[in-house]
Nucleic acid binder design. Structure first.
Length: 712
DNA sequence: ATAGGGTTAG
C-alpha cells in the first residue's frame, strides 16, 4: 500500500495556520475544513500533497460520517491525488466508490493522461459505458483524444472522431482543438487541416496545433502557407503562436522571416516570457545570427537554464565551440544548474574540438549530477568519445545506456565505421534489428560505409536495393556515395564510374572526389586524372580535387602536370589550408603547424623526428618525396617531409607521455601518404598505439598496421 | 452551487 494509514492531526488549526491562503481571520470561527472541496481544489492546483492529505484525513474522521462516500468529495479527492501524481491512490478511491458519475471518470482519466499512462485512458474510455452506463461528454472526448495524440494511436483517434460526430459534440472548441491536435501529432496533416476547415469555429489554439504539427513533421512549406492564412484570418496570436513561428523560422534558417516575427511580437503587447525569449535566442542561433542571439539574451531580465542552454547551442551551431564552453562557467557563477540539454551541448562542443580531456571531465560531472542515464546525454557522450578517438569509451557508454533511441544506435554504428571497425558496426546493426528501435536513413549511412571498409560489395548492394526499400527508407545521395566508395574500394573503379553515370542522382563534388580518391589510392592515375579534370570543371573551387590531381601527377613524376595544377590554383586564388595537428597532454593542447618552429621545444622535437625516422628506415621506410613540391632538391624534400605537422605532434607525444600511453593526434587535413607509412612503423618501433583523426576518419596505428587498411 | 478538458522554448 502506497499511503500510510491516515490519522487525524492533533491540532489541525495550528498546522494549517502556516499556509497563508487558508488563513482567513475575518471569517470568524469557521473551521479551516469548512469547505473541503475548495481546499482540495487549491491543494491540487498548488500540488500541495501535505494539505490535501490532511483534508482527506479530516474527511475520513469527521463527525459527518462517510463524507468520502459522497460523489463530490470523492471526485475532488481523485482529482487532487491525480494532479499530485499519486495516480494509484486516485485509482483506489475510484474503484471503492459505490456510485460514480462522469466527472469521476474524467478526473481519473486526466490523471492517467498527465502521468504518462495514455493507454490506460483508452481502456477506461471503453469501460465507462459497460461499467457505469455513461456516455462520454466533451471533457471525456478531449482527454481521450489527447491520449491518442501522445501515444500516436491514430486508429483509436479516428474512432473517437466518429463517435464525436455521432454525439454532436464537435462544436465544442476544446473537442475540435483536441481533434486537430490528434491528427497533427499522428502525422496526418490532411486530417488536421480537414477538421480545421470543416468544423465551424477556430481560435488561436486551433491554428497553433496545425502550424506546430506541420513544423514538427517537417512540412515547412505548408507551415508557411498556414501561417500566411492565419496572419490574414486571425490576429490575436499568443505565446505559443510566436514560439511555433520562431521554430518555423529556425528550421527554415530564414533570418528574414524570424526578424519579421520578432518585429511583429515587439509591436504586439505580448509579454515576452522565458519560453518565448528562449525560442528567439534559438531562432537567431539557427539562422546564423549569433550577434542577435547574444543581444536578445543580454536584454533578458528573466533567464533560466533553457535560455542559457539556447545561447550555448547557438554558439555551438555557429562553430564557436570555445565560446559555448566558456559560457558554462559564467552560467555556473550566476548559480544556474545545468541539466541534460546543457550537458549535451557541452559534450557536442568538446567533441567538435576533440577535447578528450574536457570530455572526460564533463563525463565525471554528469555522473555526479545524475543525468547520465538520459538518452540525449548518453548519445552526446558516445559522439564525444567516438570523435575524440576513444571508441572503447564510446562503447562503454553505449553498453551502460538503458534507453537507447535511433540516435544512440546510429552514433555507435557510425562511430565504429569511422574507426575502421566494420565488423563491429555490422554486428551492432544486427543487434539493432532485434531491438525495439528501427533503423532509419542515418543508420544505413553507417552500415554502408562499414560494408565499404570490409569490402562487402554484395551485402552493401543488398542493403541499398532490398533492405532499405523493404523498410520504406528511400536511399539518398549519402547512401549512393557510400556505394561509390564501396565499389571503388573493392577495386571496381569502372563499375563505380558506371554506377555514377547510370544512377539518376544529382551527384555532388564529394561523391566524385570519392571516386578520384579511390583512383589515387589504387594507382589508376589515368582514370583518376580524367575524372578529376571533369570535377574541376564542375566546381573550380574544390581544393581537394586540385590536391589529389597534383598528387597523381607527382606519383607519375609528371612534374609538368604538377606545375600546371599549382599554376591554376594560383590563378584562381585557391589556397591549400596549412596542415595543422594538435594533441592534448594533461590539460594543455599543443598545436603544430607544418614547417613551423614556433613551439618552445622546437629543436628537441625536430631532433626526435630525425631519431624516429632513422629508426624506421631499416624497417623499410622510404621518404615519399613525390608528396613534396617538385622544385626542391631531393635532400630538401626529405626535410620538408619530416616537418609535417602530424610527425611533429607524434614525436612530441612520444617525448612527453609515459611509455604505455596511447597518443591521440588530430589533423585538419587528410593525412599524407608519407606520414601514414611513417606512423605505422613508428607504432611498431616504439610499441605504442597512435590514433590520428584526420579530416575524414580515424587511423589506429598499432604494431605496424593501420585500421584503415591503407585506404583512406 | 459543486468536481473534470486542448497548444508551449534548449
Amino acid at each position: 500500500m502506497a499511503m500510510p494509514t491516515p490519522r487525524p492531526p492533533r491540532n489541525p488549526r495550528a498546522l494549517l495556520s502556516y499556509v497563508p491562503f487558508l488563513f482567513k481571520p475575518n471569517r470568524g470561527s469557521s473551521s479551516p475544513f469548512a469547505d473541503p472541496i475548495k481546499l482540495l481544489k487549491k491543494s491540487a492546483e498548488t500540488k500541495n500533497l501535505r494539505i490535501g492529505k490532511l483534508v482527506h484525513a479530516h474527511l475520513i474522521t469527521s463527525t459527518q460520517a462517510s463524507k468520502t462516500q459522497d460523489v463530490f468529495h470523492a471526485n475532488s479527492l481523485i482529482n487532487f491525488y491525480a494532479k499530485c501524481g499519486d495516480i494509484s491512490i486516485a485509482r483506489q478511491l475510484f474503484d471503492q466508490m459505490s456510485e460514480r458519475n462522469i466527472v469521476s471518470w474524467s478526473a481519473l482519466m486526466a490523471g492517467y493522461l498527465h502521468n504518462g499512462l495514455a493507454l490506460e485512458v483508452l481502456v477506461l474510455f471503453k469501460q465507462m459505458f459497460s461499467v457505469d452506463n455513461l456516455r462520454p461528454n466533451e471533457y471525456i472526448f478531449a482527454i481521450a483524444l489527447a491520449s491518442c495524440s501522445v501515444s500516436g494511436r491514430i486508429e483509436e483517434g479516428k474512432q473517437c472522431h466518429g463517435y464525436v460526430l455521432k454525439s454532436g459534440l464537435e462544436f465544442h472548441q476544446y473537442v475540435k482543438n483536441a481533434l486537430i491536435h490528434m491528427y497533427s501529432r499522428c502525422s496526418d496533416v490532411e486530417g488536421a487541416i480537414w477538421v480545421l476547415n470543416t468544423l465551424p469555429g477556430y481560435d488561436v489554439v486551433s491554428y497553433n496545433s496545425v502550424i506546430n504539427g506541420l513544423v514538427e513533421l517537417g512540412y515547412l512549406k505548408e507551415a508557411l502557407e498556414a501561417t500566411a492564412r492565419m496572419a490574414s484570418e486571425y490576429k490575436a496570436w499568443d505565446n505559443v503562436t510566436y514560439i511555433s513561428l520562431f521554430g518555423l523560422s529556425a528550421r527554415l534558417k530564414d533570418l528574414n522571416l524570424g526578424k519579421q516575427v520578432h518585429g511583429q511580437m515587439l509591436k504586439s503587447d505580448l509579454d515576452c516570457d522565458v519560453f518565448v525569449s528562449s525560442a528567439i535566442v534559438d531562432m537567431y542561433g539557427k539562422c546564423g545570427n549569433i550577434l542577435n542571439a547574444r543581444k536578445v539574451f543580454d536584454c533578458l531580465q528573466d533567464r533560466n537554464v533553457v535560455s542559457w542552454t539556447a545561447l550555448m547551442a547557438a554558439y555551438f551551431q555557429n562553430g564557436c565551440f570555445e565560446e559555448a564552453l566558456n559560457l558554462f562557467s559564467v552560467m555556473e557563477v550566476e548559480d544556474f544548474m545545468p541539466n541534460e540539454y546543457t550537458f549535451a551541448v557541452l559534450l557536442n562542443s568538446s567533441a567538435s574540438l576533440s577535447a578528450l580531456r574536457l570530455g572526460d571531465l564533463l563525463h565525471a560531472r554528469i555522473k555526479k549530477s545524475g543525468f547520465k542515464g538520459h538518452t540525449i546525454v548518453g548519445n552526446a557522450l558516445i559522439i564525444m568519445y567516438s570523435k575524440s578517438g576513444n571508441i572503447k569509451g564510446a562503447n562503454k557508454v553505449f553498453s551502460d545506456l538503458i534507453f537507447r533511441d535511433s540516435v544512440t544506435w546510429n552514433a555507435m554504428i557510425s562511430g565504429y565505421s569511422h574507426h575502421g571497425l566494420g565488423k563491429e558496426a555490422l554486428d551492432l546493426f544486427q543487434d539493432m534489428l532485434t531491438s525495439v528501435v528501427s533503423p532509419n536513413y542515418v543508420t544505413f549511412i553507417g552500415v554502408l560505409s562499414a560494408c565499404a571498409h570490409l569490402g562487402l560489395v554484395q551485402e552493401g548492394l543488398y542493403y541499398l536495393n532490398h533492405l532499405m526499400r523493404k523498410m520504406g527508407i528511400e536511399p539518398g545521395l549519402e547512401h549512393y556515395t557510400c556505394i561509390v566508395g564501396l565499389l571503388s574500394r573493392a577495386g571496381l573503379l569502372d563499375e563505380a564510374e558506371n554506377f555514377m553515370r547510370s544512377t539518376p542522382v544529382k551527384w555532388d563534388v564529394i561523391a566524385w572526389r570519392t571516386l578520384v580518391n579511390a583512383c589515387h589510392v589504387l594507382r589508376n592515375y589515368g582514370l583518376g586524372k580524367r575524372i578529376a579534370e571533369s570535377v574541376m570543371l564542375m566546381d573550380p573551387h574544390d581544393v581537394g580535387t586540385y590536391i589529389l590531381l597534383s598528387n597523381m601527377y607527382a606519383k607519375e613524376s609528371r612534374w609538368d602536370g604538377v606545375v600546371k595544377i599549382w599554376k591554376l590554383m594560383r590563378e584562381r586564388n585557391i589556397k591549400k589550408e596549412p596542415g595543422v595537428s594538435w594533441l592534448e597532454i594533461r590539460n594543455i593542447t599543443h598545436v603544430f603547424v607544418s614547417e613551423d618552429n614556433k613551439h618552445p621545444e622546437s629543436s628537441q622535437i625536430y631532433e626526435k623526428v630525425g631519431e624516429l625516422l632513422a629508426k624506421i628506415k631499416p624497417l623499410g621506410y622510404v621518404p615519399n618525396i613525390a608528396a613534396v613540391l617538385h622544385d626542391v632538391e631531393d635532400e630538401q624534400k626529405e626535410n620538408y617531409l619530416s616537418y609535417h605537422s602530424e610527425k611533429l605532434a607524434i614525436a612530441y607525444g612520444l617525448m612527453k607521455t609515459p611509455s604505455e600511453a596511447s597518443i591521440r593526434v588530430i589533423k585538419n587535413l587528410r593525412m599524407c601518404d608519407d606520414c601514414h607509412s611513417a606512423a605505422k612503423l613508428i607504432s611498431k618501433v616504439t610499441n605504442r598505439v597512435i590514433i590520428v583523426r584526420d579530416a575524414n576518419r580515424f587511423h589506429h596505428f598499432q604494431d605496424g598496421c593501420c585500421s584503415c587498411a591503407d585506404y583512406w
